[in-house]
């Protein structure tokens, strides 16, 4: 069963087509890689799915409902969470508060409860605290909970972004170059972590990544973009040998 389905989606900025006529699907509990050379439109696809951009044409269905044109927070509310290529944490907030912020959308109580601090409010805050600490422990960030996010090491920041996205309790997680800037051993840890995340939280994951070892190592299916169009799709072994993919990455002659 597919949970995300893009049908003939085109995104145009002025005269420039960043994504053209793209059809893409992600099934439940599937790990799909989205690759392509720089400027192929990968991040634009993320921005379309999460509502940062509204597609020029085409439909984006999530769990059967069209989400194109919804505001980002509404789409997150439906169950899509993301990380950012250039890390976007709440820099001045603590690690704990970064994750807590992601629990905001699931609050049962409104502003009056926060002001009156009744029993229900305190119970809910305590519940959230436990949830957040649970997440932080799974991802080995519990010891850093009081530190401001922008004081963290680069790898920890990337991890925190994933934790924060998970705390919105998504059904689909979009990871935008999670391995960027990591060394080989950090990348190994990241791959384990992504697999573990997928199993533990029963997620579908769409992954944009440049590091082929990571992509080939964990993805079940790979979609290749070039100049905004899909040029290949299939399991890692197929993609590795696909002449169109090699041409896109290395230029025509090499193919």
């Amino acid at each position: 069963m597919n949970i995300l389905e893009l049908k003939r989606v085109t995104m145009q900025f002025g005269g420039l087509k960043c994504v053209s006529d793209l059809t893409l699907r992600v099934d439940a509990n599937e790990l799909v890689g989205l690759i392509g050379p720089n400027g192929a439109g990968k991040t634009t696809v993320f921005n379309l799915v999460t509502g940062v951009y509204r597609p020029s044409s085409g439909t984006i269905r999530f769990l059967g409902r069209n989400v194109a044109g919804r505001r980002p927070y509404q789409i997150t509310g439906r169950g899509i969470a993301r990380t950012f290529q250039n890390i976007r944490l709440f820099g001045s907030l603590s690690v704990f508060d970064n994750v807590r912020t992601a629990c905001n959308m699931h609050l049962r109580h409104g502003i009056s409860h926060a002001l009156l601090r009744g029993r229900g409010f305190r119970a809910e805050e305590e519940e959230i605290r436990a949830t957040v600490m649970g997440f932080l422990e799974v991802f080995e960030l519990a010891d850093l909970r009081g530190r401001p996010a922008n004081s963290l090491a680069y790898g920890d920041q990337r991890r925190l972004e994933i934790v924060r996205a998970l705390a919105t309790r998504p059904k689909l997680l979009l990871l935008d170059e999670p391995a960027a800037g990591m060394n080989p051993s950090e990348k190994d840890r990241l791959m384990t972590l992504i697999r573990l995340t997928k199993e533990k939280f029963h997620l579908a994951i769409l992954l944009v990544e440049h590091d082929m070892r990571v992509v080939m190592g964990i993805c079940e299916r790979i979609v290749v973009l070039d100049y905004g169009t899909k040029i290949a799709e299939g399991p890692p072994d197929e993609i590795r040998r696909d002449p169109r993919v090699i041409a896109a990455y290395l230029g025509e002659e090499a193919a």
């Binding site: 999460t50 509502g51 940062v52 505001r71 980002p72 927070y73 997150t76 509310g77 969470a81 993301r82 950012f84 976007r88 944490l89 709440f90 820099g91 001045s92 907030l93 508060d97 807590r100 912020t101 992601a102 905001n104 959308m105 924060r164 996205a165 919105t168």
Partner: peptide, 18 residues
């Protein structure tokens, strides 16, 4: 925490469902 999130990064705040 929604207030602080908006201050630190509006785009990330929206992505967190705020």
């Amino acid at each position: 925490s929604g207030f602080l999130a908006v201050r630190d990064d509006e785009i990330a705040a929206e992505a967190m469902g705020i």
